[in-house]
Design a protein around this nucleic acid. Structure first.
Lengths: 90, 90
DNA sequence: ATCAGTCAGTTACTTTATGTAACCTATTAT
DNA sequence: ATAATAGGTTACATAAAGTAACTGACTGAT
């Protein structure tokens, strides 16, 4: 709960459910500042929820993806989605 | 999501799942400051998730409880609980 | 009548978190 | 050499949260 009630955590995981993504892409998609995204991704990596993969291409590409632990979050987020659809019509 | 990622919202709803409760009780149970609890309860009331019931006893008793919309949150919170138990053993 | 106690908050002030925009480092292309 | 791109970080400003003291309505005891 302390995890989810941190701002952006839910949206970041939700965003990553659609597949591995790079820093800039996540930033643009959910509208979080680079500073906070950087902090959150480090936290999520330490929690073992997110993985950081470096592809030494040119230019370098770094992708963030969910681990098994992170993927297990999906049902929670689908549930939230479902609740929203049922109750936030107004 | 913007709702749940506000600090304390999840814990307040979780706490209210165990039944109607008064201000002081919620405050003590989850360790939120009176100031923020007051704000959050107002927000939740405006969202139609929480109800405020006044019992003009002596001294006055005011209880907060979940509406139908709020009770529909239960499955989300149970899911989070379940996830925690599965993954936060370490 | 006055003092202390309870409940449900509010207010003033401090600390922490977040946002903004500029900057840094490494690599490659021109 | 200069500029562009990716992936951040830093310094500074604003917003949110914590703390502790206070208000206001009521009651019960002195």
């Amino acid at each position: 709960m302390n995890l989810l009630s941190q701002r952006w955590i839910g949206l970041i995981i939700y965003q990553l459910l659609s597949g591995p993504q790079r820093f800039c892409h996540i930033e643009a998609a959910i509208g979080v500042s680079g500073k906070v995204l950087s902090e959150r991704l480090k936290d999520l990596e330490n929690e073992g929820i997110v993985e950081r993969n470096i592809y030494p291409e040119t230019p370098v590409r770094i992708e963030y993806s969910l681990t098994e632990k992170g993927l297990a979050f999906e049902s929670i987020l689908r549930d939230i989605e479902h609740w929203s659809q049922s109750w936030l019509e107004a």
